[in-house]
Design a protein around this nucleic acid. Structure first.
Length: 347
DNA sequence: TTCCCTTTGAAGAGA
DNA sequence: TCTCTTCAAAGGGAA
């Protein structure tokens, strides 16, 4: 697995991920070989159902669990039939739905997309997973093919980081051969399954209201003026919409004065599972008609463990690159910063 | 309005 | 070094 070979001079968490990934893989193997027998799975489902019944709408959960169980069987059969190298089929579908790919209309190089149009389709054409962070450079007025160092931090030359530049400076529809974006068809599985086509869930943008451009814009602006998903207003997501409006609607000085006192918070880069959740959440919602995040996350957690090593490795690699870019953009940032903020807010 | 729930993983704090 | 805690996303639900 190339991204986990520890080579290439990339020492940003690669070892840890390797360990973690092996652990996940071992866990998965255990799941596959013993723990995930149908009876155990049924127990798991049952326990989850019970838990769900205690705390939330049980009817919906049960339906999801039953669906999951049914589809788990389908998936196992499917995995037996499909060669490993075709796992990318899922990936193609998965990342096409990555929320950060929903570029706001004014910033779409291919022209505006009407609200009723499928914004996902704009990025489904050979888009690489890490283009979620495309907005970093997408707001750069320079033509995409001209490397421009948008980072104002001394010593940080993002376009010189081959990996990063390859991912974050790609214009839409452009992909390097090294990325080897899989192009296999997605697996057709029924709803609430472990894997299935994204198309059904993402064809209607109205199904994902929070994935509209406001979601991408919630990230705020990097000090360089580059929007970044990790930057949010200090008061949290409750103000995201207002924050967006301040940036993109209010252009008069009064609006500027309103937001000036608010210092954006640089949030933690997403880990592999968070990236997976962010991508798959909408699909689970669409399939299972679930709305409660706690229940959705339970399903996603189980699906995460049901992923193959290769599938998980892609998310680990994405997360690693997220951290890498985050570190380059905010070299002085530490997760501790947000700890302190919370503590100060509480005190 | 704010916090909780629920998941996994990364990172920091403390023993 | 190990264990524990916090925070990332998400949005319904409870207080």
């Amino acid at each position: 697995m190339p991204q986990l070979n520890g080579g290439g001079g990339d020492d940003l968490g690669a070892n840890d991920e390797m360990i973690a990934f092996k652990h996940e893989g071992d866990h998965e193997e255990k799941i596959r070989e013993s723990a995930f027998t149908e009876s155990d799975l049924a127990d798991l489902k049952s326990s989850l159902v019970n838990e769900s019944e205690i705390s939330q709408n049980s009817a919906v959960i049960r339906r999801g669990q039953q669906e999951d169980q049914r589809i788990y069987t389908d998936k196992r059969e499917h995995l037996d039939d499909v060669p490993k190298h075709q796992d990318g089929g899922m990936y193609k579908a998965s990342y096409s739905g990555y929320p950060f790919l929903m570029l706001p209309e004014p910033y779409l190089p291919n022209g505006p997309v009407s609200p009723s149009s499928n914004k996902v389709s704009v990025v489904q054409q050979g888009m690489h997973p890490l283009t979620p962070l495309l907005p970093y450079d997408h707001f750069n007025p320079s033509p995409p093919h001209i490397p421009t160092d948008v980072s104002q931090k001394p010593g940080v030359h993002r376009h010189q980081s081959q990996e990063i530049s390859g991912f974050y400076q790609l214009p839409q529809g452009q992909i390097t051969p090294s990325m080897n974006w899989p192009n296999q068809p997605v697996y057709p599985l029924p709803s609430c399954g472990f894997r299935q086509s994204f198309s059904s869930g993402l064809q209607s943008s109205s199904s994902f209201p929070r994935f509209s451009h406001s979601l991408m814009l919630q990230s705020g602006m990097h000090p360089t003026g580059i929007p970044h998903p990790a930057i949010v207003p200090p008061s949290g997501k409750q103000e995201h919409d207002q924050f967006d409006r301040n940036i993109y609607v209010k252009s008069h000085p009064e609006a500027k004065r309103e937001k000036e006192p608010k210092k954006p918070v640089i949030k933690k880069p997403l880990n592999a599972f968070m990236l997976y959740m962010k991508e798959m959440r909408a699909k689970v919602i669409a399939e299972c008609t679930l709305k409660e995040s706690a229940a959705i996350n339970q399903i996603l957690g189980r699906r995460w463990h049901a992923l193959t090593r290769e599938e998980q490795a892609k998310y680990y690699e994405l997360a690693r690159k997220e951290r890498q870019l985050h570190m380059q953009l905010y070299p002085s940032w530490s997760a501790r910063d947000n700890y302190k903020k919370r503590q100060r807010e509480k005190s």
